[in-house]
């Protein structure tokens, strides 16, 4: 665990920046800070989505069910809020629990499938879960029309002492902190995976499952653990987003685009790393927002061009590009096999 220190330091640095950000934004931008906070929450949401998806990818399994677990968490929050009187804050852990349990069930039967077969099974699961939610009694899950979800925070407006925009600021600031906390939790889980023996198991299973098993790794167990962790985290995100957006609806909450963003972002940033998906989420959010402001219409075309170009020219994402540049500047980089060969 000695090597974990830099990770802990940069996570801590990120946490401090996050803690100060709302105050600094408000001081610097006044009313405009309201939308900046909202953008920051969107970026962190993409980061959580991407990094949680990457956890399973590290075992070599490509899941197309991330939208399903996101939706399961969101619906768990909505049903909890509408059917019971328990405090809404419990919706967060509940969303994670429901998604984690679903992953345990789905993973037990599908994780023996490899590559494209697992991907298709998880894609089918997303559609099935959406259909099931739609067919549930309307009184429980709202059918095709969905449900309203109460907000996690209700701003306190003090007339005379506050300006009207500060209501929105207060609300966005509160959500900003919860997103930051969930992001830090996701990063912490990722760092634990990367800095303990789990990394050896996940990487071995990804590169050669049969050989990993001969060396004592239990591939089924490693993949199931990754799947449950990955899904529980995105389930919590789904619950949080449901509260921030105020409603859930089958077509939107289980939208396949959620899965697409979950896998495109780590590919863009750098797969199988903690930094890659986070970096990818930050850069892609900034690119998207800039394009949106420049071309109100058709900005998605520009977004697509950026993605295609980056996948063509940065096969290992932003993190891979950075490593390549550093090696080139530092000369030889890693020792070549020839250097270390020595007498046989």
């Amino acid at each position: 665990m000695r090597r974990a220190l830099p990770d802990v330091l940069w996570t801590l640095a990120l946490a401090i920046v996050a803690a100060l950000a709302p105050t600094l934004l408000k001081a610097g931008f006044d009313q405009a800070s309201v939308s900046y906070l909202s953008l920051a929450s969107n970026a962190m949401s993409l980061g959580i989505l991407a990094l949680s998806w990457d956890l399973l990818a590290r075992t070599g399994q490509l899941s197309l069910a991330h939208a399903a677990f996101y939706g399961a968490g969101a619906y768990a929050a909505a049903v909890l809020a509408n059917a019971t009187g328990v405090p809404i804050v419990l919706a967060l852990p509940l969303g994670g629990l429901v998604a984690g349990l679903l992953a345990l069930g789905l993973g037990s039967v599908t994780l023996r499938l490899k590559g494209i077969y697992f991907a298709i099974a998880t894609l089918a699961f997303t559609e099935v879960l959406k259909a099931v939610v739609q067919e549930l009694p309307t009184g429980l899950a709202g059918g095709a029309a969905g449900l309203n979800v109460p907000p996690l925070f209700r701003p306190h407006f003090v007339p005379g002492q506050m300006q009207r925009w500060e209501i929105a600021f207060q609300r966005n600031e509160a959500y900003f902190y919860v997103y930051a906390a969930l992001l830090v939790l996701t990063i912490a889980v990722s760092i634990v995976v990367q800095r303990t023996r789990l990394r050896a198991a996940f990487t071995a299973v990804r590169t050669n499952e049969a050989v990993a098993a001969v060396m004592g790794v239990r591939p089924a167990r490693a993949k199931l653990l990754a799947f449950v962790l990955s899904s529980a985290l995105v389930g919590m995100l789904g619950a949080l987003e449901a509260m921030r957006l105020g409603s859930v609806i089958p077509d939107g909450t289980f939208a396949i685009s959620t899965t697409v963003f979950a896998l495109v972002t780590p590919i863009f940033g750098g797969l199988y790393t903690t930094l890659g998906p986070i970096l990818g989420a930050g850069v892609l959010s900034a690119v998207e927002e800039t394009l949106k402001r420049t071309f109100a219409e058709g900005y998605l075309i520009g977004y697509g061009v950026v993605l295609v170009a980056s996948i063509l020219f940065m096969p290992r994402g932003l993190v891979g590009l950075a490593t390549r540049l550093r090696r080139r500047r530092g000369g030889s980089g890693t020792p070549a096999a020839g250097d270390a060969e020595g007498p046989a």
């Binding site: 050896a200 198991a201 990487t203 071995a204 590169t207 004592g216 790794v217």
Partner: peptide, 18 residues
């Protein structure tokens, strides 16, 4: 395992073998 170093390869067996 091509992506791992020599030591990491051996560590897989050392960590999970017994």
């Amino acid at each position: 395992f091509p992506e791992m170093t020599v030591e990491e390869n051996v560590m897989v067996g050392a960590l999970y073998g017994a």
